[in-house]
Design a binder for these strands. Structure first.
Lengths: 112, 112
DNA sequence: ATAAATACCTAGGAGTCAAAGGTATTTTAT
DNA sequence: ATAAAATACCTTTGACTCCTAGGTATTTAT
């Protein structure tokens, strides 16, 4: 997709997945991790990320621990119990969606 | 994704892919084909489809042939030459996107 | 006779993400 | 020493995509 942006719904699932694997992360760390893990193919912008983190926190999916490192603020996010369940759901929905999408994209011409 | 709608960008690619395989199709036919091919998992709504067809036509990606069948109007769409190129691009972009998405979703925990 | 299916359409709204701006500190390069 | 880049947070506004909900008209099934 070059730089035509993230797919609808994928942002939240990506965040949850990273938190599932890493235990806890702070916002800036998430942006860097995604960039590194995808070799720059995906970029999570801060304008999308921070509001989403706040929303997930308000929904009880994430919880926050604030820490001061080198006089700079860091807000570490991690999954709540509800968030862990939600993550599993989101990931399998995404996998299911991708599977269906691939089936369509790989449709062969009607022979005959 | 249950019925939480199509991913951003996938609608156009799906339309183009179907037209690539079928040669020409009319709007209503596209909605039925997608429903059938995905066993109801994807539904292309008419409110999304028709404006998109018009847009693609305006962009010179599709062209139209109007026919009257049983006194009912049908607008058959097919790819222009430009549309054929565009289709190839969109499909490989989508495949690339899916690949990256899967890499993220299948990330394993950092051992150690 | 009525409902469902076929076939087209649009206006308005909801939701997701990005662009572009802001603050403040620390590190690196000059 | 100074300037720039990186780290780390944030919000407002807007673009874009798709859906909801309505509409018209004909044909087929009940």
């Amino acid at each position: 997709m070059a730089d035509s942006g993230l797919f609808k719904g994928s942002l939240i699932t990506i965040i949850l997945k990273l938190l599932k694997e890493d235990g806890r992360m702070y916002g800036y760390e998430i942006t860097q991790k995604v960039k590194a893990a995808t070799e720059g193919k995906f970029t999570i912008t801060e304008g999308a990320l921070y509001p989403t983190l706040h929303k997930l926190e308000a929904q009880g999916i994430l919880e926050v621990e604030v820490e001061k490192v080198d006089n700079r603020l860091r807000k570490y996010y991690k999954l709540t119990e509800k968030g862990t369940t939600e993550t599993a759901t989101k990931i399998s929905e995404l996998e299911e969606y991708i599977k269906t999408l691939q089936e369509i994209i790989q449709l062969k011409p009607n022979l005959g």
